[in-house]
Design a protein around this nucleic acid. Structure first.
Lengths: 113, 113
DNA sequence: AAATTATATGATAATTTTGTCATATGAGTA
DNA sequence: TACTCATATGACAAAATTATCATATAATTT
């Protein structure tokens, strides 16, 4: 359980990256396609794809000015399957964890009075 | 790939919690024992144990004023094994990812001039 | 070669997560 | 009952992560 493990899980523990993984699980996509499907900004997608690539979650195939991203199937898919199992069992608890859940959220500046 | 997945991975992606998991992998321990072995503060351990318990990673057995924490073996151990495999392959890349790696770190206030 | 399209990247503000401090609770013991 | 030990918890400062903005690069088309 080293620092590497932590990095590995960090790559997973982010909304944008998980969304990308979810999409790529179906089929390879370009940056623009991912943008359209998620509704997220392009630079946001690029930054996070870079992270995923760096960590070995995705591979790229340049094609002209496009870059096709696809998911690594050897380890990422099996891991996703495994935690589906865990989540089935602990859904309720995960949902209301105070430390990492939404309830830990503080008031946003924009909400402050 | 929902918000739940994110929470699940978040539970893993923290130094303190990973250290606790590493220790509990060997045998069940009380809070004080974990404190001693890690050198981390007691409230830090308690807060994070609570998170782990909440997320179904650990179970507690109260015993007098002690509380023995042990790891869930059904899903957590297999997952750990799976990512060992991934890490073996991508060690180098994970180590230098700019987005989630150490190099993303900004200067601390105490270091500012 | 200028314009357009696709993607990447650096800096930084906004947000989230974490650890710490102070303190609370609860069980056992003198 | 007062004291000690084991653990929990709330609030908040500090640290880490994230998204966004501005801009860069690189391929393609006109």
């Amino acid at each position: 359980m080293s620092n590497l493990h932590r990095l590995f899980f960090k790559a997973f523990s982010n909304k944008t990256r998980l969304e990308i993984i979810r999409l790529l699980r179906k089929k390879p996509l370009t940056v623009t396609e991912i943008c359209k499907k998620t509704g997220f900004e392009q630079s946001r997608i690029s930054h996070n794809l870079k992270c995923l690539e760096h960590c070995g979650f995705v591979k790229v195939t340049p094609n002209g000015s496009f870059r096709k991203y696809e998911l690594d199937k050897e380890t990422i898919i099996p891991i996703v399957d495994l935690f589906e199992k865990h989540i089935k069992k602990y859904r309720k608890r995960l949902e209301c964890c105070k430390v990492i859940g939404q309830s830990n959220r503080r008031m946003k500046k924009s909400e402050a009075r």
